[in-house]
Design a protein around this nucleic acid. Structure first.
Ligand code: SF4
Ligand code: SF4
Lengths: 137, 137
DNA sequence: GTTAAATAGGACTATTTTAAGCCTATTGCC
DNA sequence: GGCAATAGGCTTAAAATAGTCCTATTTAAC
């Protein structure tokens, strides 16, 4: 329960990499995969998701690659999570009501939804900017 | 990402059922499964986990069943989660370091661990007692 | 003491989700 | 045109979750 996906970690590492070592540069997926130690193919999918969300910007063609699409102060951990895994649903009925057979008689949906928003609040409270300061590399 | 398991929801429902409709009684899994609307077999597993954690107490044999093992003020949502899903690991390296190939060069493990503790804090902040008051059935 | 109703739990299977890989466009510098 | 890159669809592999089945044990009731 409650474990982040590998793809999310790929995305988070990629963003911090771009923020620290990609300043002003356009960085290829190959470089990032090599430097960070990830599978190039899979990281590529994560980058595509980040790009669609506007967190990264891409340049196609030879000499292409990725750079950040926003300032580090404007990217939160929650943004990355949503870009990569879509809207969060702590309970299955959040996806679609008929995913749960006791939907109509369930009494703790309200609490679970509040809980979800609180968790989301935690993720939203950290920007890449503050994360990098905490890390102190 | 970050979705609770079905088994956890089974357990939470069972505990609130025992707390509201099982007062002083020993309730069978069959009754709970019928009333709540769950699979008896699977709920049974959840109850066994809750029992091992001391959240529920069991009585074997004919006329047996389950009742709460603690006061509702002393059971938190986190207790139920841990009883059913074991210690939480927001990141895979929490289970075992070699589950992550970039463990030695990873810089955001610290942040992820803090995040995990904050999430755990949220779950710990709600006891069954307060949950029932919020629900107002 | 036999029976029946219940928990205890191991072992298995099915389903779903996640992770990864493969392959074919398309883009755009040289 | 050739090449190095992103874009993305499709398929496969692995892992986690969900659910079932079966057997043992316990104990109240008869
Ligand atoms: S048990 Fe309640 S909260 Fe959980 S999925 Fe079903 S309706 Fe939603
Ligand atoms: S990327 Fe870092 S935090 Fe995530 S599992 Fe690997 S070592 Fe742990």
């Amino acid at each position: 329960m409650l474990q982040v996906s590998r793809k999310f970690e790929y995305g988070l590492h990629a963003v911090t990499y771009l923020a620290t070592k990609g300043l002003g540069r356009v960085v290829t997926v190959k470089e990032m995969a090599d430097e960070i130690g990830f599978s190039q193919e899979f990281l590529s999918k994560a980058m595509q998701s980040l790009k669609r969300a506007g967190i990264a910007a891409s340049v196609q063609g030879v000499k292409g690659g990725y750079r950040l699409g926003k300032a580090t102060e404007e990217i939160t951990v929650a943004d990355i999570a949503i870009a990569i895994e879509g809207e969060p649903h702590l309970v299955r009925c959040g996806v679609k009501a008929d995913r749960c057979e006791i939907f109509s008689s369930c009494h703790h949906r309200g609490y679970m939804n509040i809980l979800q928003h609180k968790i989301q609040g935690l993720l939203n409270a950290t920007t890449i900017h503050t994360l990098l300061k905490e890390i102190e590399r």
